[in-house]
Amino acid sequence: MLEVETLTKTFQLALHQNITVTAFNNMSFSVEQGSCLYISGPSGSGKSSLLKCIYRSYRPTKGCIWYQSREYGRIDLTTLSERWIIRLRRQEIRMVSQFLHVIPRVPAIDVVAEPLLLLGESLEDARMRASAWLERLAIPSHLWDAYPQTFSGGEKQRINLARALITAPRLLLLDEPTSALDPHSAGVVMEILRDLKDRGTTMLTIFHDDRLALQLQDRQLNLARPEKTEEMKSI
């Protein structure tokens, strides 16, 4: 489903004497469809940068990212035009970050429904599916018409998740999706993610808590040793 070949990401800081910062170097790995790769490593080892390169929020410096698209076959995400990346993001690949950036004063239910509207669904159907996801993610119904800016960190994170999951993506990139959640809410999210994985969704994940990662992962990629992919032992 995803093959990363000798991927390198460096940042050229033009405002700081043009110094070059390397996020990661010559990284290669592959991920099978329906499996979950847990990306671990200390802060600053390039975990988020790797996900952002795959999502193309960062421009990869060198290497290839081969993705097996349902609609368009095997394509290299590093050279794909922006227009195709936008199309893939709407249809197949979603990323969930820790932060929610949405237009102010738009109700939570419409924030969640928006990705479906962009795919051409009717407002009524999109809202119905959005409410189902909000319910599944345990967002109280009296908050559905409220603005997410007023929500707690954990609620915002679940809105972010609902927005990503509502289009049933094939490839899900999760950057600390449970960092602001209490243990109960984190459990709810993990159950949903396990269910999605069982249904064939491929995932690349970063978790702040190894125990959560163990519930989901098939393999681990430790960025402290990027050249080696280890099989994780189950507890």
Binding site: R56, S57, R59, E82, I85
Partner: peptide
Amino acid sequence: GLTDQILQDPQ
């Protein structure tokens, strides 16, 4: 480029 790329990884 893509808006999020321009904002997160300006060249």
